[in-house]
Design a protein around this nucleic acid. Sequence first.
DNA 1: ACCTGAACACCGTTCAAGT
DNA 2: ACCTGAACACCGTTCAAGT
Lengths: 199, 199
Amino acid sequence: MTGTESTRRHTRDDVAGAALRILDDYGLPDLTMRRLAAALNVQPSALYWHFPNKQTLLADLADRIVAPAAAPRSADWAADLRAEAAALRDALLAYRDGAEVVASTLAIGMGPTIAHERLATAISAGGFDDATARNAATALQHFILGHASHEQQRMQYDSIGVLAPRPGESASEHDDPTAEFTFGVDLIVAGLQFSRTRA
Amino acid sequence: MTGTESTRRHTRDDVAGAALRILDDYGLPDLTMRRLAAALNVQPSALYWHFPNKQTLLADLADRIVAPAAAPRSADWAADLRAEAAALRDALLAYRDGAEVVASTLAIGMGPTIAHERLATAISAGGFDDATARNAATALQHFILGHASHEQQRMQYDSIGVLAPRPGESASEHDDPTAEFTFGVDLIVAGLQFSRTRA
DNA sequence: ACCTGAACACCGTTCAAGT
DNA sequence: ACCTGAACACCGTTCAAGT
């Protein structure tokens, strides 16, 4: 009567789907193998038929989280890059703790390579050499992931209520996260434009 | 005979020191309260007299890791900012998993505020308004933490041996992390210079 | 002031065995 | 092909009690 899955025999997609729901409803700390198994009416050990371990499951979730980041295509490479960055951020924010899931799996070398590729492609369209495109995409990706992670953590703590206000920082003077994000992306895009001006 | 602490009655500093040694010698996943207690010849519950929980202990370690990041002072604000960024990176890399400790505690709003302040101060010296200094410092901090975390994780996996090479990326064509880091910092500094040119 | 002892409520993972 | 049952080796944290 809980509305969760009921019948037996699950597929790998079922498991990933149930995991995404737990993630979005209760957050990453509550996404345990035991809890996921319970949601599927299955023993914890059953999950290891579908995924070799939790790390691999999280990497799969990271792929699914990043996948829907849409890509535009115009004559203005800088505008395209900004849109790509914004789409990636939106995808990360679409699931609770989505940014941290992607960041942590990327850190252990298992994450989705698509995000970096899309950013690098947008930069390459600006006529930059491959090394510049790769390195700038890496820098931008670090910023996007770090910023989105921080933003999502703030959302959690604000909802819990016990927000620890920084000294000298009143609760009302929090910067708008979206404006802060746009500033950072613009800063990096401007850096690229500057480096081209000098070349 | 292990060379670790032996007599009883520890201070908060003893606990933090032992924790830093476990962190540096065995990495963050092995830094458990039980293992830390064992290193101090103490029951796990004894640690909770010195720190209310593990999160607070990690925040204390983050402060100690970031603290030694030195600050120069010259007439060239951009050079100072680059030096500040490099000093922060060096401090993070000085301990195994140091970047992840700082990043994770910063994410939950407990981390060291010093790093951001030093970056923002260096930017302010360039004549930028406070909002710009804060937002640019935030962006730079996200990049530094993300990059250093990634770099340290790669070091672990390379030492374990089982490095999962990305498709189309041979083991020998890994970019030099220091060059990659410098590129990212320069990109953001250039972005600041560009925004000033337009003002 | 600093620690012990014992418990509570959990984890991820393995593996033989079942259907 | 997909899962059960039972175990192994752990976690962080609390709390009364000791010295």
